[in-house]
Structure formats: structure tokens, C-alpha cells
Design a protein around this nucleic acid. Structure first.
Length: 492
RNA sequence: GGCCCCAUGGUCAAGUGGCCUAAGACACCGCCCUUUCACGGCGGUAACCCGGGUUCGAAUCCCGGUGGGGUCACCA
């Protein structure tokens, strides 16, 4: 397998399939995608599944479908294939083996027979002493005879990279500048585990090299791994790619975003009814800014404007309030058709709409969507907002009861009932609007005296959707029922 | 604790030595629109972590402190 030679930009997103796609992973994927698109390069998605214990196909599928849902696509990688494949590390084991052997042969790596228990004890004492935890090099100079003996004892070796004693490694980072590390603080690290599977640090280097990756863009948590990888590139005689470490996304308490900070996977936001473009827009603004006053940006605009120079160095707190605002903005600015389609599953889940809604049911859903779309920030909220259309109110609220007790109320309700009786049972919004509008004048009353009791009677609340949105959804029959119920409740 | 990164309002952030008596957005507050809430419009409160340098001049450069974060696995 030869590296793909090209002068263009090539980046990758390389998640390990140990869980659903995380907010932070999604942002890394997005940044890589934007970078590739901005510079006319290639974007690849590779699965790093060398952790046999925790990796699963289920997670892999979740990651792939979440990426797609966000609107990202890739030129090469899992699911789509490409010249640098396979794109799952467990399917590339021969490749890693070849280079591990090369390193072994030229003495840059060696077998280590220390047991995990021995290592753990050592680590503990180093940590207690306040040193950098690192392998002491116990197996560095084992003779072939030593190895044979240890293997005779049934020990399975790992392969360690021999880290040069006094060397300074400079990581050239596009967002952080040069970052220096002293090899004295780095112990000989494992590149192949005792089961023959390569570790992350080794596999990532081999793959990025053979896949022709020009820029490694990833989260800052990987920064301290980077010198190890640079060492490997040098040992293997391969060119070192450019790095760009993007700072972390933090929870409200300023620690790395995790489950305890609430919804952290893309899937969860999808299920709550967030729109992909809102998430993309929000994520893009977390750690990057366009430098203009624009806040609402489409994927297209983002890919035209994205640049590494504008990626921020400091960590960003995930601000759910702002995501909610942005998502609400997108809901308000999407077509009513789309919002209706998105709302239907939530209405069904609440039992407000049948499994297979017919045309009139869809029309009803459409009216509901129109009535509440300015009041919700994500689609899951339609359940609560739509309640008023389906559940008759109880009139327990004291403030509501006061309003119903006003003296003009019976007259107002009677007037509306009479009007409805004279009309077809199915009302459209125009009719409702016109009818409502004339009411105060006809009764010689102020708007407030008319509308407030009606609102309370129909919803049980003093706030909610516009009355002319309410009537068509409820229909004359239900409106009349609620007016009578309200009167009865007020009299009680 | 060692190593590494970071530091402008509550949050995201613009700012790359004078244009800063520091932008914009979210949140918050007020006013307007309105039958209510919401939406929308207008306005407001609110920040350069501290201390030393460098410089005619520092939010911007340097050093130190402090604070926060990351990382120290046969996980990625």
C-alpha cells in the first residue's frame, strides 16, 4: 500500500466506535469537513476500533448515521470505501504488523514482558512521588535468551517504542503554534498490545500516513499524545502532517463535557427535535467565529468562510440556552410543511394523532404547527404546547376563575356560540379571524373583556396560542363544549 | 503532583500596539407592538484575572503569579 500522493488538503475524522456520536466528536467532524470543503480537499472517515472490548458495530452505525443526519458526507471511508481502505482499523492489522516488525528489526522497538500488575504498581508509586508516570525501561535490553525464557513462562509480550533519551519534540500546531515536549518525560510506550492489536498511537500514525492525511485536526485532549506520534513518524521515516488541536467543549461546570452534563450525543438532540442545521450552526460557533457579526450561518456559508486561523484556543462552555435560541430561530424560519412533518411524530407519541394520519389529520397538524411554532425551541416541546388542543381544561387556576367570573362573560360566550351555530362545523382560520375580530364591537365591549375570558374558557390559561389559531383546530363543537364547561366551572 | 494548553461581560465571542470612553450574539432587565404568552422592534445592565516589565502608547508583546482545563492505560 502506497501513500496517496497529492498536493491537496486531506483530513479525516477518526472516531472510536465506543458509543454514540458525541457533541465534541461531531464538532471535530464538522471542522474537518468544513476545512476540506473550504480548501477543495478530501474528507475521510475512519473507524478506530482497536479497543476490542468497547467497540461495537452499533456505535459505528450510530456515528455514521449521526454524521449523515448533520449533513456531512465524506469522500472516502467507512460505508463509501475508497483507495485507502479498508477504513476500519481491525481490518488493517497486517499493515500495522509489518511496520511494528520493521521497528523491532531495526531496534527502534522492543518486546516487553512486564505484567499489567507490575506496571500498575510502578505507576502508583510514580504518581505518589509526583513524577510523570512512565515506563522505566526494564525490558529495554533483554537478550533473545531472556525473551525465550519469559515466553517459556507463558508471558505474552507487548511491543514498546524505544523513546530517545534526550530529545526535544516540537509539535507544529496550526492553532496553538509550536508546542515543545521533552522526551525525558516520555516513557517507552506500547505500540502493539499483547494480543497483537496496535495501540491508538501507533495505528493512527500508520493510517494517517497511508491515507495521505495532510492535516490532523482533533480535540485538544490528544495534544499530549502528539509527541509520541511525531516520534513514530520520524522513526518510520514518514513526513509529519500538520496538526491542529481544537480546544475542548466544556460543560456548565467548566469540565470536559460528559453524560452528567445532560444530552451529549447527537442522537439525543435529534430525538428531542433539534434541527441538524441548528446544531451545525451552533457547533461551528463553538470554538470558531466568522469574524463578522453574523450568527446564523448555513452549512454552505460555513464552508465558504471556515479557516483554521479563526479557531479559538480557549475552551468553550456548551451553552444550551443559545442552542435553544438558534434552534427556535430555525424552527421559525423553516417552511410550515417541514415543521408540520417534524411535529407529527411528537403528536403521535402523545397520542394526539393516529398512527396513520389521513388528510384532515395532516391539516390539523399543520394548523397546530402554525399555532405553536413561535412558542417552541425544539420539537419535543410540541407535546406540551399542543396539549391545549386535545385536553379539555380544568379551570383550577384562581386567576383564570376570576376572569371567568366577570359579569360580561355569559353574554360573550353566548354571542360566540350563536355565531358558531350559524356556521359549518369546520372552521378555517380566515373565518375564525374575521368572526373574532367583529365580536368586541358587536358586543360594545373592549377587546380584553372579550378575548381574555374566551382564552381562559378554551385553554384554562391566560396565555397561549392566538385565538384564531385555536378555533379551527378545536372545531365549533369542542369550542361550544368548552365554553359551557367554563361557565359551569365559574359558577361552581 | 509531573508535563502540556488556555485566560475579554454569566455564556459564545470580535479585537493581531494607537481606530477601544472594547463589537456582535445568547441570557437578563426595561419600553414598544399585542386580547395573553410568544415572535418581532428599540434600548439598557454587564468584561480586558493579578503583578511586573517592553513601548511615546498595551486587552493586544515578554516574564512571573493566580485561576481553569487537559493528560499521564496493553482506551481512544
Amino acid at each position: 500500500m502506497e501513500p496517496i500522493l497529492s498536493g491537496e488538503v486531506k483530513v479525516r475524522f477518526a472516531p472510536s466506535p465506543t458509543g454514540p456520536l458525541h457533541i465534541g466528536g461531531a464538532r471535530s467532524a464538522l471542522f474537518n469537513w468544513l476545512f476540506a470543503r473550504r480548501y477543495g480537499g478530501k474528507f475521510v472517515v475512519r473507524i478506530e476500533d482497536t479497543d476490542l472490548e468497547r467497540s461495537s458495530r452499533e456505535s459505528e452505525e450510530n456515528i455514521v448515521s449521526s454524521l449523515r443526519w448533520l449533513g456531512l458526507d465524506w469522500d472516502e471511508g467507512i460505508d463509501v470505501g475508497g483507495p485507502g481502505g479498508p477504513y476500519r482499523q481491525t481490518e488493517r492489522l497486517d499493515l500495522y504488523k509489518r511496520y511494528a516488525e520493521q521497528l523491532l528489526a531495526n531496534g527502534m522497538a522492543y518486546r516487553c514482558y512486564c505484567s499489567e500488575d507490575e506496571l500498575a504498581a510502578q505507576r502508583e508509586s510514580q504518581l505518589a512521588a509526583g513524577d510523570m508516570v512512565r515506563y522505566t525501561g526494564k525490558c529495554r535490553d533483554l537478550t533473545p535468551e531472556d525473551c525465550a525464557r519469559l515466553e517459556g513462562e507463558g508471558r505474552k509480550p507487548v511491543i514498546r517504542f524505544r523513546v530517545p533519551a534526550d530529545k526535544l519534540i516540537t509539535v507544529r500546531d496550526k492553532v496553538r503554534g509550536d508546542v515543545n515536549f521533552d522526551c525525558a518525560g516520555i516513557g517507552d510506550f506500547i505500540i502493539v498490545k499483547s494480543d497483537g492489536i496496535p495501540t491508538y498511537n501507533f495505528a493512527v500514525v500508520v493510517d494517517d500516513h497511508f491515507m495521505g492525511i495532510t492535516h490532523v485536526m482533533r480535540a485538544e485532549e490528544h495534544l499530549s499524545n502528539t509527541p509520541l506520534q511525531v516520534l513514530l513518524y520520524e522513526a518510520l521515516g514518514w513526513p509529519v502532517p500538520a496538526f491542529a488541536h481544537v480546544s475542548l467543549i466544556l460543560g456548565k461546570d467548566r469540565s470536559k463535557m460528559s453524560k452528567r452534563h445532560g444530552a451529549t450525543s447527537i442522537e439525543q438532540y435529534r430525538e428531542l427535535g433539534y434541527l441538524p442545521e441548528a446544531l451545525v450552526n451552533f457547533l461551528a460557533l463553538l470554538g470558531w467565529s466568522p469574524g463578522t457579526e453574523d450568527e446564523v450561518l448555513t452549512l454552505e456559508q460555513l464552508q465558504e468562510q471556515f479557516s483554521l486561523e479563526r479557531v479559538s484556543k480557549s475552551p468553550a462552555v456548551f451553552d444550551l440556552e443559545k442552542l435553544n435560541w438558534l434552534n427556535g430561530y430555525y424552527i421559525r424560519h423553516s417552511s410550515l410543511e417541514r415543521i408540520t412533518e417534524l411535529a407529527v411524530p411528537f403528536l403521535q407519541k402523545a397520542g394526539y394523532l393516529p398512527e396513520n394520519p389521513d388528510k384532515t389529520m395532516w391539516e390539523k397538524a399543520r394548523l397546530i404547527a402554525a399555532a405553536i411554532r413561535e412558542r417552541i425551541e425544539y420539537m419535543d416541546q410540541v407535546t406540551e404546547q399542543a396539549r391545549v388542543f386535545f385536553v379539555d381544561p380544568g379551570y383550577e387556576d384562581p386567576q383564570a376563575r376570576d376572569i371567568l367570573a366577570q359579569e360580561q362573560v355569559p353574554e360573550v360566550f353566548r354571542a360566540l356560540q350563536d355565531k358558531l351555530a350559524a356556521l359549518p362545523a369546520v372552521l378555517d382560520e380566515e373565518t375564525a379571524r374575521g368572526l373574532l375580530k367583529k365580536l368586541p364591537k358587536e358586543l360594545g365591549l373592549g377587546g380584553k373583556k372579550v378575548y381574555q375570558p374566551l382564552r381562559v374558557a378554551l385553554t384554562g390559561k391566560t396565555s397561549g396560542p392566538e385565538l384564531h389559531h385555536l378555533l379551527p383546530v378545536l372545531g365549533s363543537q369542542r369550542v361550544i363544549t368548552r365554553l359551557q364547561n367554563a361557565l359551569a366551572a365559574a359558577g361552581a
